[in-house]
Design a protein around this nucleic acid. Structure first.
Lengths: 188, 188, 188, 188
DNA sequence: AATGAATGAGAATTCATTCAT
DNA sequence: GATGAATGAATTCTCATTCAT
């Protein structure tokens, strides 16, 4: 039941937004009563928290898997991360949208649990960029922080436009993003 | 008064979110009453609409100014657009955040007014990319749509992290984004 | 309207108790809506607070009037205070009952506003007892604190049983309480 | 288990009040579940009833013990009753507070079981006063009903202020109350 | 141009209670 | 004896909105 509530909520939050979705709306789609909701979650915010946490935790876990592979060059790992993010939009997309949009709603206290994880993902990516610079793969004249923000911006933004099943496949987008990123769009 | 209400609302919407900000909150910070609000706006949604429209209209106007300059190369115009977006985060940043976050809230009908403008901005950018390809500035093997999404993602994402007055200046960020974009991050 | 809400609430609280009376109940008896209630009171607790404060403030004001009369003997003043309390049960009785019963419900913070006033009333009474002892009216071998608790207990308890319009008049009760108190019930 | 539930409930009811204490609260402090509660009690009201009944029954039983002693003078019996009440505040105090406060909550039907017992206690006391008058111990010019209410008020009120372990011992208070009551506070 | 009282619909949340296991 | 999932009705409270003045 708890799982069903989460699933259903994600769908609704994505479509209408968190604040615009009532507990009533959630339980109605499941054919249960509000009491049931509160049996599993102590508040609406806790549910959002649950969604956020499982999204970011999943992301970090898979990122660390990518980073662990010592033999791969930094560029391959960057590709992995971009793919990972875009894939998530396709697959777990609803969670992702909820994650990026409904952050402000969490209380200070809950944010203290989420923000560090979000930062960790960025930090890991930045480390990767630095590594690439050190081992001569990436240009040393670029600021790793800005590069990282650029990479994440490119990939994360896809939650705003990427349509699974549309003209562009997930792989095509990831490949092209990596291509752009590594060699630039200008003709040499 | 109308202006003051808008200003004040943007600040509040950015901080707490649209749904979490009540009309009471808005008028209280101005020391007026709810009646006053409804003298100027017919609904809360109309106010949000106002904010959205003036943001996107301003953006488009300035974009078209950039595009109009026939002599400039495409790369310079791209730079202009990136600068424009990042500048807006710095300057009109609150509007921008509200714009990106509180889209889902608008009714179908209001969205029909906003979405085409948003698309226009992207379309204009995509045209620019295509132009650059045609005149030999940009690589012809890249999909213009994806490139455009990448560019806008990079720049727009800055609303999530860019801090005016922080370590990175607006210009440093714009420059490096353009640099990355044109020549890539890989060592040749 | 605010006044009407208070009046109506006192009646309901007295009959059913605070927790058992809903805002719905209150507004229904007045033919208004819940919104109206919250226009005047920010919470149910605030309403209870209002009732408590105006009760205890009235009591203290009238007590101080009684005490001010320098020429009267302590015994007359004691009589005044007993009369005052019993009169209040008759007259403002509902408030009184609410006051004595629904104290625990107030939050710590609200209690900090009420308790000192309640204590002041007792303190004033105790001072009076001490004065009576000093000027030779009252027995010096009695503990003024206990005597005071006894007096207040006798009088306050009447909220549990005194029925205005019943066999016993307010004056008969006050007189007899004072008589008992001063000369005792034992035959000399 | 039933005993534990009662004990625990009294403590909670006294601290927060009956309506403000949930069954959840009660079972949580015992580490059991709500089902357990309903195995022993058919409703929350029944639990309150249980508490009330065992309090008042105990009181009456001990009062009748005091009254039975034919040889003792009325004044000694009055002392016994005052002691009894004050002792109960010290010892079973929580029950007492709950008893005095949470009466209004019981349904008509349950009240019909409690009120007569409460009245019996008062009636027994009043009989005692009348006896004292008849046998010449007490003044014949006082109304026995009022005297009784005065006595009970003095003693019962102690549930509002008496603090076991404070400056005043139970015996000191009882003694002084009896002294006041019998011979009055005025200097002869 | 602005106020302030009032509305009414709906929100989140609580909680006593039931019942199959 | 006890559990835990589920209910459903009620509760407090919020808030966009209206409207006479």
């Amino acid at each position: 039941m708890k799982g069903k509530i989460i699933e259903s909520s994600i769908r609704l939050f994505e479509r209408r937004g968190f604040a615009e979705t009532s507990i009533q709306d959630i339980v109605e789609t499941l054919g249960v009563t509000k009491g049931t909701f509160y049996y599993y979650f102590s508040s609406k915010e806790e549910l959002l928290m649950d969604i956020h946490l499982s999204y970011i935790d999943g992301l970090i876990a898979r990122q660390e898997e990518i980073l662990r592979d010592a033999s791969a060059p930094a560029s391959a790992k960057i590709r992995g991360i971009i793919s990972l993010l875009i894939h998530d939009i396709q697959c777990q997309g609803l969670s992702a949208k909820v994650f990026f949009r409904e952050m402000k709603i969490l209380s200070e206290e809950k944010l203290r649990q989420i923000v560090p994880k979000r930062d960790l993902f960025r930090f890991n990516t930045e480390q990767l960029v630095k590594e690439g610079i050190k081992n001569g793969e990436f240009r040393p004249d670029l600021d790793p922080a800005i590069v990282t923000f650029g990479i994440l911006g490119m990939a994360n933004w896809s939650y705003q436009w990427f349509q699974p099943g549309g003209r562009l496949t997930e792989d095509a987008v990831s490949d092209m993003f990596v291509d752009m990123l590594l060699t630039g769009i200008a003709v040499k």
